[in-house]
Design a protein around this nucleic acid. Structure first.
Lengths: 195, 195
DNA sequence: GTCTATAGATTGATAGAC
DNA sequence: GTCTATCAATCTATAGAC
């Protein structure tokens, strides 16, 4: 049985979008790998844009959930830590999808404008919350930098740094909190620097 | 006098590449803005790839210089700080060019493979140096995260955070050093957290 | 140096048979 | 559900007149 052709197409598209980039991946190539013709893809997805939306949806859902849950929370060290942890988990579980955005932001923005703006808005909401209430410019910048640190989940392999998922999680969590200047929890690594 | 047509073309290309993305920018559009025909562009640049190389070259030169100067330096806090400062300066002075890489990495990688690999190699060398001699995985990850923090120079405006160049420089320098767990210089901001 | 004209290829998408 | 055939658009790049 061919299981679910629709799902196979999605999986192949995800793989190609995340490695070659969205615009650089043609429907012809996807069809070839799936073992179908281009025309047949259109039976399952009405357009290349529709395919992109299906591929990318889980991450959007994840971010939205975090942003909504965070919104009413007080900006305490503990809460910040939990929100950052949830961000890390979404990124770790959806590395390929995040790669789609990273590999060809311009292409995604062009063909799925509202998707792109949604993800921008979500990013801004999270940065806004991380920056804290009535933030200074410096606090806003550090919140942006914190989001960038989270992106290291993917960047690491680009730089040839391979790490187990658990270590990725632990180190990047702490690094993110360092950028936000949040105190380390008692009993944790802390400052072991300065030789 | 038309000044330097060649330079005008480069400027227009930079503007479009950095906003719309490399692959999403056609030579037709560049030609239109410059006030020439597509064919005339080919008198000045032999291909779209050649135009990309010309557009992007200053940043590559900048990174290369930093990587080469850093290589023989001892990995001391002072030296790390100076290297990070130089990285920041290159980024701040070439925001548009860096945007070309950020907007469409896949497109750049496809059409200028060796350029892309050069920039990857440079990034790895810098991360390697920042991580210190015989680094642990955690130190490597923090070096990657540090590079990502530097990328906030551009990310900030994506998130709607506007900051003067001097503040961008100061805050991101300190945030980068925080990620690397380097001690703050005496007399500097330091830990002003925890309410 | 700039132009017109066009080649040559690829792409996303549709029509319609089976 | 999958196929063949094809359309219309767009793009990079070249040939050759001026």
């Amino acid at each position: 049985m061919d299981g679910d052709t629709r799902e196979t197409i999605r999986a192949v598209a995800l793989e190609l979008f995340s490695t070659k980039g969205f615009e650089q991946t043609s429907l012809r190539e996807i069809a070839e790998r799936v073992g179908l013709t281009k025309a047949s893809l259109y039976y399952h997805y009405s357009s290349k844009q529709a395919l992109l939306l299906a591929v990318v949806e889980p991450v959007l859902t994840g971010w939205r959930a975090i942003a909504e849950d965070a919104a009413p929370l007080e900006h305490t060290p503990t809460n910040v830590r939990h929100v950052v942890e949830r961000c890390l988990d979404v990124l770790l579980r959806n590395r390929a999808i995040v790669g789609v955005f990273q590999r060809d932001p311009a292409g995604v923005a062009l063909v799925a404008k509202s998707l792109w703006e949604d993800s921008l808005t979500l990013g801004r909401r999270l940065v806004g919350w991380l920056a804290g209430p009535a933030p200074t410019t410096a606090e806003q910048l550090r919140a942006v930098a914190a989001m960038e640190v989270l992106g290291s989940v993917l960047a690491a392999s680009n730089y040839g740094v391979e790490a187990a998922e658990a270590e990725l999680r632990d180190v990047l969590l702490q690094a993110t909190l360092d950028v936000l200047r949040l105190p380390t929890e008692p009993g944790e690594s802390g400052m072991r620097n300065v030789v």
